[in-house]
Each structure stands twice: as C-alpha cells, then as structure tokens.
Design a protein around this nucleic acid. Sequence first.
DNA 1: CTTGACCCTGACGCAACGTCACGCTCTATG
DNA 2: CATAGAGCGTGACGTTGCGTCAGGGTCAAG
Lengths: 350, 350
Amino acid sequence: MLLKVGDLAKRCGLTVRTLHHYDSIGLLKPSARSDSGYRLYNRADISRLHQIQALRRFGLSLADIGNILANPGLNLATIVERQIEALDQQIAQSQALRDRLSGLQLQLMRGEEPELADWLTTLEMMTMYDKYFSANDLKRLPLLDIDENSTAGEWAALVQAVHEAMRAGIEPDSDEAQALATQWIGMLERDTQGDPRLLVKLNAMMYGEPTVQAKTGVTPELVAYIRQAFIETKLTIYEKYLAPDEFSFMREHYGQRADEWPPLIAAIRQHREDGTPPNDSRMQQLARTWLELFRAYAGDNPETHAKIRAANQAEPYLFFGTFIDQPLLAYVFQAMAELRQGPLPGSGVA
Amino acid sequence: MLLKVGDLAKRCGLTVRTLHHYDSIGLLKPSARSDSGYRLYNRADISRLHQIQALRRFGLSLADIGNILANPGLNLATIVERQIEALDQQIAQSQALRDRLSGLQLQLMRGEEPELADWLTTLEMMTMYDKYFSANDLKRLPLLDIDENSTAGEWAALVQAVHEAMRAGIEPDSDEAQALATQWIGMLERDTQGDPRLLVKLNAMMYGEPTVQAKTGVTPELVAYIRQAFIETKLTIYEKYLAPDEFSFMREHYGQRADEWPPLIAAIRQHREDGTPPNDSRMQQLARTWLELFRAYAGDNPETHAKIRAANQAEPYLFFGTFIDQPLLAYVFQAMAELRQGPLPGSGVA
DNA sequence: CTTGACCCTGACGCAACGTCACGCTCTATG
DNA sequence: CATAGAGCGTGACGTTGCGTCAGGGTCAAG
C-alpha cells in the first residue's frame, strides 16, 4: 500500500507543498520512489507523518520534532513542560498588550475621536513616558490624561503664558514672572504628588528628549526662566533675614547648583522608604552632599547659617516646591547628627 | 540638530540595522544625507520614528504602520479594535493549546513515563481521534485513557483474544466465538455510552484509517468475524420463534445490511434529541428506511413479522448491542404510525 | 599617518510553507 | 493510438523583521 504525495496529502489534510518541504528538510523522506521519480510513502512513512502532526499540534517546531523523532531517549515530559512555559509567557505578553490596547480604546471612546495626527502625538508621548517612568509611576502621573481641559490642558496654557512673558521681555524678577513660577512649581508638586523621584525622572526626560521639548514647548530656556523667577521668590524672603553682604553672596550662588537638589532629595526619600538607617554609610554620604550644597550658597559662616535657619522656620513658603517634607527633614537631621560625631559643622536648614 | 544612525539608534533603543531596514522599506527615510552618504535624521524624522515605535508597541506590522502614517484619515479606533480582536483570538488559541498540553502533562505524571515510542503512538492515536470526534465526543470516550490496565488495556486484550480465536480456526458460530462477540458488543455499548453516533464515528475511523487498524489490531476481517459471531447469538434465539423456511430466509439475509442500521439509528437519535416531530418529512423518510431494512431480513409476510415481534418482546437480549432503547423505539413507532396513514404495512419490530 | 570607531551597500539566513513556472508522467477517452 | 487533463517533479522567489557577516569608505584623535 504505497501512496503518492497527493494521496497522502489528502488523507492527512496537508498540502503537497508541505510534504515536499518535509522531504527537503529531511523530516519525512518517502521510503521509495517510483521509476518516474514519484514519491511513494509506505505505512511506516504515514505513521511517522501522523506522529509529526501530533507533535505539531503541540506547537513544536519542525526542527524540534525532528530531534525528538531522531533520538527517542528524550523525555516527553520535559518537552511538554517547556512548551507550556513558553506558552504561558506568550499568553502573558499578549494579555499585557491586550490590556494596554483596551485601555487606549477606553480613552478613545471617552474622547471625541480627535485627528489621527493628534493621536500619534499622544501615542508618541506615551511611549516616551514609558521609557522614563515605570508602570507604577505612570499610574500616579496625571499628565498623560487625554482629556483636553484637564491637567494636560492646564499645563499647555501655562507653558503658553510663560512663552508670552518671555517674548514680551518680562524679567524673571518681575512680579508677573514670579507669579507664573509659583503657579508652575505648585502644579509640578501637585502632579508629581510631591514625589521628588518623579520630578527627577521628569527632568531627565525633558533634558534627554528634544522631541518632548518640541511637543510640549518646555524648552531648556523656559525651564531656566521659570527657575530664575522661582529663585527670586525665595530670595525676596531671605533678603529680610540677612545682612547685605550675606545676601549678595547668596544671590550670587543660590541657583548655581539648584539642579543637584532634586536627585539628592529623591535618593534620600528612597532610602527613607527602604528603611535605611540614618547611620548607614550611604545616607552619611548623602548628608554630606546636602551640607556641601547648602554651604555652596550659604557660605561657611555659622552665624549666616543661623539666620537662614531662622528664616526657614519663620517662613513656610521657603519649603514650597522643594519636595522636602517634615519626615524627610527629620530623617536627614538624624543622619547629620550621626555625622556631627565627625569634624563637620552643623546643618543650616533648620 | 542632525543625528547619524548610530546616535539615533542609541537614543531610541534600536539597532542600526533596524533603521537601515526601515529606510530600505521606506518606512523611515532620513531627510538628509551627508556628503559622504551618511544618513542624517532631523527632528521630524525622530518624531516619526517615535510614532513608529508607539504603533509597534501595539503589535502592528511595519506595513500597517506605514499605511497609518501615510493616510492620516484612518480611524485609530478601528485599528485598535481590530488589533484587540486579533489578540483575543490568538490568546484563545494559545490558551486552548496550553490546556491540551497540561492535560497531557497530567497524564504523563500519572503514568510511569513509558517509552517515547509508546507516547508517540498514543499521540498519533489522539490526533486521529481528533479528526473523527468533536471535543465533546472525546470527553465521553474513555478509549483514549493512557492508563494501561484500564479501558484501553481491556480492549487490547480482547482484540488479542479474538485474533487468537481466528488463528485457531474457531468458527464464528461456535460458543467461544459468540462469547467473545457478546463481550465485544457489551464493551462497545458501554464505552460509547450507548450513543449510536459515537459508534458510527468509530466505525468511520476504523474503516478510513488503516493506520488505526494497524495500531489497534482491529482489522476489517476481525470486525467481520465479530459481527458474524454476534449475529449467530441473535439467530440462535430467533430460531426458536420461526418456522424452518422463515428462519432459513432470515439466516440468509440477517447480516446482509447490518452496517446500515447504526447510521440510521444515529440519525433518529439525533432527531429525537433535536425535538424533530415524528411527522416531519425527514423522520418519515427514516421510518421508511427502517421498514425497508427490516423487511430485507424479515421478508414481506405479516405473519413472520408478528413472530419476530413476539420474539423481540419475549427476549430482551435481542436488543442488546443494537443501540436502540425504549424512548427511541417509541419515537420511531410514532413516526411509523404517521406513515401508516399511507400505503405501507406495519412495523415488525414490536 | 595610522588607528579605531562609524558609516555605507549588498547579501544570506531564519520558519514554514504559498505560489508560480516549466516540463515530465500517467490515465482515461475519443 | 493520440491526446487532454490531472498529477508529479524540481527549482526559485515571496513572506516578516530584522541579525549577521563581508568588503570597503569616512572621520576624529593621537
């Protein structure tokens, strides 16, 4: 009972081409050929083909099947187990993708189907955010909300306003600029839920992605402008507490190392949440950095430090936008207290 | 701000080759080239690449992405919906496969890890069964159980015994052969749960798959032998109720159209379950077929019919292995009663 | 001037076949 | 017996999304 390719194909529900393929890769070679070169399959061949089909149904590759049939010493249980693992992983992946998509779909249904171009921009931003933020972070960031007249809309309007102020030549130390800066910082603290780590990531993204700068309009110049204006709001307060020479030193240096503060505060917050003890060497190092940054704008005079401490205690606004809260401050002070065992002078913050 | 491929690749977490590929298929062509032929990407290019990455994350093919970016008139909601559908289907498939595999794994763990060769045979049989039986059928068929000393083992032993009887030249009308046949039919009725449809499918498989015949040892000759022996068990009984000439006619014709009964009974059972009314034209046709098959072995004499009816009522064994139960019989009688309005004679069965 | 890091194009490889194209073989029919 | 049509054979290219050489220019630093 010898079958030709077509017959075998029909019987097994395959195509002739498939059998040709199996032949060419050596998976199933017909045990005989007719005089005219026709492939002839006998019962053993058919049986092997059935086995191949059985294994295929388990999602095995032809190569794997070849190996299995080649050395019957292999353990089927292991094979099956591996297949299941692979499948599980694949299913999980697809499921995750599906979730993302239906999340998007939800947003699509809520909105009024804006232009595809807008959507692409949004998608682009979303992937960008994905690069910088964890899934956890993203849940807490309301910046990505599609809804126009919500957070995203607020920011767009504010960015717009700042740009206009800059174009109009309004100085950063003007009241108007300071008001914008205060609003900016307030929204920033609100939308990051006061978490300095999110702030750091946001800064990194803004710094690292010119595309984001272009899309949002938040250029480095704009950031510099806001920062300068915000610094002015603080300096105005400190001026009342310091002697003229002290204040002129501070004005000179206050903003200079300003971008080093957020990463520092973020790191400290992380340690606090992780339960790192204040006398841990890493925390000690961070405390030293803190003091260094402090003295960079406060100078080395303990008397000046005392005045600054007084200001900080009298004026709660001075902590506004610093992402520093009382628990964090207390934690840092503990670390500094440990430090003080050493040769370093006291903290100037409070 | 123009980037070279390597720079862009790094910034976007892709490989240079990927960008080359996108270029070659026209998905992302750098807007400029340096004098030496280096690809130079500007902000617009980078933005487009970001969009591409965003869409890729949704599992779209590069071709699809090209289309979407080409005509912004397309509806994103539709795209997303289609993607979700495709994903759902894929997940369902993988899940089904996973279920099959873990079912197999269960069996593997229960058994004592037999030879791979045995496993391949079993797998082969399983796929074969899959071709003929629905998932629902398979749940009801215990024949596939791997466990050696269960159903499958019983059958193997019985097949073995029948083969030996045949080799030993034992006649089908001998007591020994009849005993084997009775056991055979009993197991058949048990393992198909008395469902004639399963019996029909089983017959089709045995008839259509020489491979199954080879693996199980259930050859057409063996089936014929069993059938003949089983017929003898019935004839022995009928003999007591019939005149010699009636009986010799019956002996002549009783088995001749025996294989037409199971499909008929299966069809009737299906109709009964579907709620087809007995006077439905299809049921009428089946009733006519029934009568035709009956008269094929009973002859046309109403007196003989009456004797057969008497025998059927007196000897319950005559229904053994027929896959006919009382509800089915009653249903057929209803159909025949409708028929009798016409020119045909009455049923002979009861 | 050389060296190493980048860049270019071109081409093959993978997985599992689908889909021609061209030519030979077999079988049934006129 | 000739012929038509179905079936068979062997290439060979296409698909998807790149990875991986190979062979050869370009550029900035030492």
